[in-house]
Design a protein around this nucleic acid. Structure first.
Length: 673
RNA sequence: GCGCCCAUAGCUCAAUUGGAUAGAGCGUUGGUCUCCGAAGCCAAAGGUUGCAAGUUCAAGUCUUGCUGGGCGCACCA
């Protein structure tokens, strides 16, 4: 934890700027950074650069004046003005580390946040098995949940289930037409096979079947109509498919330590007429209106903000008519049915507490934590009255890939249009790029594009769920765990098979989750099986291995010397601080401690930028620092008592912090590996 | 046509969102297990940050214009 120290320095520097130059807080921003190495300082600020022009002085001179006026600050032992103009500070190293280990001193309390935040992620169509693209969504979403929770935000995790869409309808068509079976038949299949895998193949067959005769699409339309209107037997079959596949998805996600608090079912939004209520609001506020003429006559439409600078050319009037029509989005079709966007608006209004209606709730399953996983329902007979309060959040994150950017923008506009720009501000589209396949992996899966084709020239191969091309999430997880198991067995031949299997699960999950997090979200991942399976270098297992090593040190200290962590650290407040102060010119120990303390700073950056690659890189860099320290600074074999204790203290803090980092990524540390 | 995103080492990616000498992993080459675990560590080689201007104390990062690529812009969901 380092941020309280940042804040303390910032406040003090602002006070000095006011004293010396009469500047207010608004005149200068004091950003706190970390000098490139520990001999320069532990914290630094480039504030003097900002002021150079205003004060007509060299940055160095300003930095010197500020340094001279700062005076003593708790936790800071000295200040220096670097020749290039940076103002650098040196921390009181022993007290910094001991307070963070709880051995001496106290830490300021964590900030309390009370505003409820909804995170919606996953939202996989419940008609087939999850694939790797879905995993990116869920891994990002779950990490967001963990990070927000870490900093004290109350979070509600939702998973939206589109049980009334064409994709489910397609699989219903597959059962009814291609398989010539019904609900009872589907139940029999579900009892004897991997139902989500079965549907994966069936869905591909249906898509192919449509392709040979477009007349067949009429069957899909009729099926979709039956699902939406609850017409039997189609509706019950669709409900069974969606329910069964959703449970498969939950099982898949649970393997990766991903879970949810509430499943929101689109069918309930329809049946409870959320749209009717939302439509009223939209009409009353004039956000949507009935288009009387032109191409969209008879549709209820919303004007789309053109937020491009839109240099209103003088000639815009002339040809404006046609273009104005372009900037309208249909919300209700001329046949009276609502579009996808409309349903989403109703859902978002509910999330933001602006709908004035609520779902009924039923118990759906038990979460990994032992708590209830709730689901919405429209049936009062199924409603459980003693449910938690859902919806009505102060802030919302919708985790959906970048292709949905346009629709997410419309959602924000709808909120603004009904007079709730504050809620619009606090709606965040957490977008990320797609997952494709590397050419090597596509070839391995037998779906390589034909040589010489356009697709063959692209840097990656797009996956197609419709054609059944792609990597199923469970297949990937199985392969990674199996490879880890072989590795564990090879390294530790004496280990019982069951233990090897358990450890392999820890390792495999770490590999998959780290892989999904380590890329910037604006980057397309060209998924490569060999790369994802690799346990060397920058990978989840590397981070786990570092913690396992650290844990082993304490285990051996206990076994060989009978020293536990508490008694090892207790004498440190009175011990000579040479080792941590780098009296011999070596600041490696302190460098590890300072870096480990930055977790709260990193978490804030992650929330600000929604860039989890930052968290992944931080964890990797921290593990690297530790590994280097581990090789150069022995603990068990160190003779000098105080040196050994300071090293142990640094390692204790390191493992505490890296374990937290892994937890934020949904990764646990195995007892050994 | 309009909008969003991407381009950094052979490959895959970072760079504290305008800061100090552009860093990692993989791959290549060479070291390193009587020594807390070698899924590790140490070292070498590898860069005109796509191109051209501009903004300032400072540009991989911001602006403009190019080049090349991806995605989006339905009375589909």
């Amino acid at each position: 934890m380092i941020l309280p120290l940042h804040e303390q320095v910032r406040v003090r520097v602002h006070a000095v700027l006011s004293e010396l130059y009469g500047l207010t807080d608004a005149d200068a921003t004091v950003s706190i950074e970390y000098p490139p190495n520990r001999t320069l300082g532990d914290l630094g600020t480039p504030v003097a650069f900002d002021l150079a022009r205003r004060l007509r002085k060299a940055p160095r001179a300003i930095a010197q004046e500020i340094a001279g006026a700062l005076g003593p600050m708790p936790g800071i032992v000295s200040v220096s003005a670097a020749p290039n103009g940076y103002l650098n500070l040196f921390l009181d190293r022993p007290s910094f580390l001991l307070s963070r280990l709880g051995v001496a001193g106290t830490l300021p309390p964590a900030p309390v946040r009370t505003e409820k935040t909804i995170v919606e992620h996953t939202a996989i169509n419940p008609n087939k098995a999850a694939h790797i693209g879905h995993l990116r969504n869920s891994a990002l979403g779950d990490t967001l949940v963990r990070v927000l929770t870490f900093r004290g935000n109350p979070v509600e995790v939702q998973n939206y289930i589109d049980d009334t869409g064409v994709q489910v309808a397609d699989v219903v068509v597959g059962f009814q037409v291609l398989e010539q079976t019904d609900l009872a038949g589907a139940r029999t299949i579900a009892a004897s096979t991997r139902f989500d895998y079965y549907c994966w193949d069936l869905y591909a067959r249906v898509t192919e079947w449509y392709g040979t005769d477009t007349e067949r699409l009429k069957i899909r339309a009729a099926t979709l109509h039956d699902i939406e209107h609850g017409t039997e037997p189609t509706a019950s079959l669709a409900a069974f498919i969606a329910d069964t596949v959703v449970r498969c998805h939950l099982t898949t996600m649970a393997r990766l330590n991903i879970d949810y608090q509430l499943l929101t079912w689109e069918g309930d939004i329809l049946r409870l007429k959320f749209w009717a209520r939302a439509f009223e609001v939209l009409k009353q506020t004039g956000a949507v209106f009935l288009q009387a003429e032109g191409r969209l006559a008879g549709c209820w439409v919303m004007k789309i903000d053109d937020d491009s600078p839109a240099v209103e050319g003088d000639t815009a009037e002339a040809d404006g008519a046609g273009e104005a029509e372009e900037r309208e989005k249909v919300i209700v079709r001329s046949n009276g049915t609502v579009t996808y966007v409309g349903k989403d608006m109703a859902y978002q209004f509910w999330k933001s507490g602006l709908l004035g209606h609520d779902f009924y709730y039923r118990k759906f399953a038990t979460r990994m934590t032992g708590d209830t996983l709730w689901a919405t329902t429209s049936d009062p007979a199924l409603a459980v009255p003693t449910h938690p309060q859902f919806g009505a959040a102060a802030a919302t994150y919708n985790v959906i890939d970048v292709r949905q950017a346009y629709l997410q923008k419309l959602l924000k506009q709808a909120l603004t249009a009904i007079g709730h720009s504050a809620e619009a501000e606090r709606l965040t589209h957490f977008s990320y790029e797609m997952v494709a396949l590397s050419h090597a992996t596509a070839t391995e899966l037998g779906i390589a594009p034909p040589p010489g084709s356009d697709d063959a020239r692209r840097p990656f191969v797009e996956v197609s769920g419709r054609k059944g091309q792609g990597v199923k999430a469970d297949d990937l997880i199985d392969r990674v765990i199996e490879k880890a198991r072989v590795e564990v067995a090879r390294r530790q031949p004496d280990l019982p098979a069951a233990d090897a299997r358990t450890i392999a699960e820890y390792i495999g999950i770490a590999a998959v989750r780290y892989f999904l997090i380590k890329y910037s979200r604006t980057k397309v991942i060209a998924f490569d099986i060999d790369e994802a399976l690799s346990f060397e270098g920058e990978s989840g297992p590397y981070l786990q291995y570092a913690v396992v090593r650290a844990n082993n040190i304490f285990q051996k200290l206990q076994d060989r010397l009978g020293l536990d962590e508490a008694s090892l650290l207790a004498p440190l407040p009175a011990a000579p601080p040479d080792a941590i102060n780098g009296a011999d010119g070596d600041h490696e120990l302190w460098g590890l401690v300072l870096e480990a303390s930055r977790l709260d700073d990193v978490v804030e950056q992650v929330v600000r930028t929604l860039e989890f690659a930052v968290l992944a890189k931080y964890g990797f860099g921290l593990a690297q620092l530790f590994n280097a320290f581990y090789h150069r600074a022995p603990i068990l074999n160190e003779e000098r008592d105080d040196v050994r204790r300071w090293r142990a203290a640094a390692v204790a803090y390191f493992r505490q912090q890296l374990t937290r980092v892994l937890d934020l990524m949904g990764v646990a540390v195995p007892p050994r590996m």
